[in-house]
Nucleic acid binder design. Structure first.
Lengths: 251, 251
DNA sequence: CGCTTACTTGAGTCTGGTCAAACGGGGTGG
DNA sequence: CCACCCCGTTTGACCAGACTCAAGTAAGCG
């Protein structure tokens, strides 16, 4: 886990942020950009498997994913784990920890990740002087809630096969919006255990379910990764229309 | 469904809002109160069973629950329903619909409800001139997300009995914070179908599960309602510590 | 080369689902 | 006033989807 200081070597200036070029992200006014740039106090680089945020901690920072994959999860006292959502470039993480006393979930990296670091303290200043950005942050929180709603519907009411197809199509859709898998078929860096914990299923049953999707040639599996072959096919199995990724703010 | 106009007969002025006296809600500055009061453009009274907000609609309003119970839910095309969360006094509903293009869930009343109505358009003004209130709204959105996280963990990873106990203890905890069931034991106005749809279980299995809680004298069931007898017992069955209801903003 | 991690697969079990029927109270129309 | 119906709850019988246990394979790594 490396923390690059302000203007350190690796620092990606917000103005030149590669993500910002993507059409999913709304263009920012120069002054907004300037503020965000000041708001960003560093970059954090974490390895695969590293814990970015821990439940119960009182984090002084919040982050935006610059690159890489991660996931939010909660644990039961006896170790049962539920993955709540996946995080990918452009996603804000740790907002809850900045607003509340402490984090109520943990975040772990699925691949090496690069994170933009923001100071929790400056959030108040953002709200005071940049109402549009404040609005954006609420919007992002609301979007996260929307995703959770859909996930909850899935875990609660879809069958195992529908759930698996939904999850992969959902991730693929979000990834496509930020330009992942543009050229080659998308490869999601997850193990089947991660899928199981997101779906609320056992590892064994998840394996058997994924096998069906593989047989139908909708996905294939490589060590440590799911290759998405046919998103439309997945959507059909899930009986889902997919989300329309609307234009959104970036931090 | 009745809409009472500004300063109509039934209108509860924000300054005299009975909820505001509760210690869970943070005290507001006079100017904040004045703005909220202006922000509130009316009251909406709905009957039990009425749909307050519909998925897909583009609502011009958002609401705060003044009294009564409701629930947020999503449907699958074939009718399967998942209840996402329950709404009770002090909760903000319809924020998503105000921020996004359209609602991604519906809201239905479990009992007669009284709602404070706010204009979506004025949300921008709130963000521009009342950063603290804006912050509060984000905080509330974040709290809703936190509740969803916990619900998702429950549906995904807890057993049927744990889930049922958790749900009822969760609702009871929230209700107690806003003063419901202060004198008599709390009575939650839900049917077993509502419990089933919140837990992701079938009606039959839900009935058998609730029966166990009833045998253990943790709850009892009256027509159209769950009576909470022993919250600590429920927490124990759920293997859960309960949420600490922290002070929060009201609207 | 042995260890670890992740994926597979089969067998047997059990939780939870489906189907079906019945009950009881409240409301309503005859 | 009574018969009927509807809604929500209850129960039993049976079925199936998902879980656990167990063992084996394959690839990567020190």
């Amino acid at each position: 886990m490396t923390l690059t200081g302000p203007n350190g070597g690796k620092r990606v200036p917000c103005e030149k942020c590669p993500l910002r070029k993507r059409p999913v992200f709304r263009p920012f006014e120069p002054e907004e950009l300037a503020f965000v740039s000041r708001f960003k106090t560093g970059e954090l680089s974490v390895d695969r498997g590293a814990t970015v945020l821990v439940e119960g901690a009182n984090s002084a920072h919040l982050y935006t994913v610059l690159s890489g994959w991660g996931f939010r999860y909660k644990l039961l006292p006896d170790g049962r784990r539920q993955i709540l959502n996946y995080a990918m470039p452009g996603d804000l993480i740790g907002l809850q920890g900045s607003l509340m006393e402490e984090m109520s979930h943990s975040v772990e990296a699925l691949s090496p990740m690069l994170l933009c670091v923001f100071e929790r303290d400056q959030l108040h200043e953002l709200y005071r002087h940049h109402p549009d950005l404040a609005y954006d942050i609420t919007w992002l929180a609301s979007r996260e809630e929307q995703m959770l709603d859909e996930n909850l519907l899935s875990v609660g009411r879809r069958t195992a096969l529908e759930r698996a197809a939904y999850l992969i199509a959902f991730i693929a859709g979000r990834a496509a919006a930020v330009g992942l898998g543009d050229s080659d078929p998308l490869e999601i860096p997850i193990t089947q255990q991660h899928v199981a914990d997101a779906l609320g299923l056992s590892l064994v049953h998840t394996n058997k379910t994924l096998r069906k999707l593989i047989q139908r040639r909708l996905i294939s599996w490589q060590e440590r990764g799911c290759v998405v072959r046919d998103v439309d096919g997945l959507l059909e199995v899930a009986r889902w229309e997919g989300t329309n990724e609307t234009v959104r703010p970036l931090v």
